[in-house]
Amino acid sequence: MADQILSGGGANGNHGVAVNIKDDDRDSKNTTENSSTCIFLTVPFIQKIIAETLGTYFLIFAGCASVVVNSDKEKVVTLPGISIVWGLAVMVMVYSVGHISGAHFNPAVTIAFATCKRFPWKQVPAYVSAQVVGSTLASGTLRLLFSGTHDHFAGTLPTGSDVQSLVVEFIITFYLMFVISGVATDNRAIGELAGLAVGATVLLNVMFAGPISGASMNPARSLGPAIVSTHYKGIWIYLLGPIAGAISGAWVYNIIRFTNKPLREITKTASFLKTSSRNNNSS
C-alpha cells in the first residue's frame, strides 16, 4: 500500500537488469532491448508480484468477508467492526510484505507513485494486474463460501448520487495517499509506524464514507467483486475517483515536502515541479 514501507532504499524495482557482454553493434542493440525486459524475468521481481497478489488477496478477503458476514448474520459485525477489519487488514499486510513489494495493494497508489517518479512505469502493468487478480480471487472465494439463496454482493455501490460518491471517493483517496506519501516516502517520518498510520487512515475513511460510497479508495477492491458478480453499476466512479484522488494527494504532499526551503531557492533554477521531481529522486 505504500512504496518504500519498512525499507530504506529508493523506489522499488530497479534491480536485476541483466548486462550482457557486447561484441559488436548488433549485440549492443540486443543487450539494450533485453535489459528492458529482463526485469520481468528475475526472481526478485517475481517475488514482488507474488507478494502483491497475496497481499491484495488477504486484504480483500478479510475486508469483504466482514461486509458479507455482516449482511449474512443480521448486522453482527456492524459498521465500526467493518472499519476495524479493513484497517487491521491493511496494517498487518503492510508489515508482512511491505519490505518485499512496497505493499501497494492498490492500482491507484501504484499509478500515483509512478506519476511522481517514485515507481517505474514499466512495472505498473504487472503490479496492477497482480492486484486485480488478487482481488478477483478473494471475491471468488467469498462467492463460493457464501453462495445460495443469500448471495451477498461484496462490492461497492453509491447510495446517493453518482457525483456525491465520486467526490467522496476522490477526497478519501486523496487523504489516504497524502498520509502514505508522508509516512512512507519522506525520510523525516518514522517509517516503522507507516503500517499503523495507513491502517488507521483506512479505518477512519471506512467509518464515515462506507455508508455513502462504500469507501473503496482502491479500484482493485471494487473491480474484483464486480468481475465475480458481473455487477458493474457505477464502476467508473471507483476507477476515476480513487486514481484522481491518489495522484492529487501524492503531488500535494510533494508540494509541501519542501516548505523548509526559501521560495527563491526552490524556484531559482527551474520550475517548481522539476525541482520537486529532482529532490524526490535524491531523497
Rank of each mutant, 00 (worst) to 15 (best):
S213T: 06
T115K: 06
I172Y: 01
L157R: 15
M207Y: 10
A112G: 04
V206P: 03
W251P: 05
V97P: 01
L193R: 03
G140N: 07
T230N: 15
T141H: 10
S271T: 15
I237L: 09
E192G: 12
T267W: 03
R118C: 00
F40H: 15
Q4K: 05
G81A: 09
R26Y: 08
A270G: 12
S161N: 14
N70G: 02
D186T: 04
L223T: 09
Q4I: 02
A270H: 11
S165Y: 08
N205R: 10
I266N: 07
W121F: 13
L144N: 12
P211C: 12
A246M: 12
I5E: 00
Y57S: 02
R143E: 10
P262L: 09
F119W: 00
F170I: 13
V76S: 14
G16H: 09
F178K: 06
A112K: 00
R26M: 08
V76F: 10
H231N: 14
V69L: 05
P120Y: 00
I39W: 00
S147A: 12
G210D: 11
G9H: 14
S181M: 11
L157M: 15
A18F: 13
S222I: 03
A114L: 09
P242G: 04
L157H: 13
F153N: 13
A189G: 08
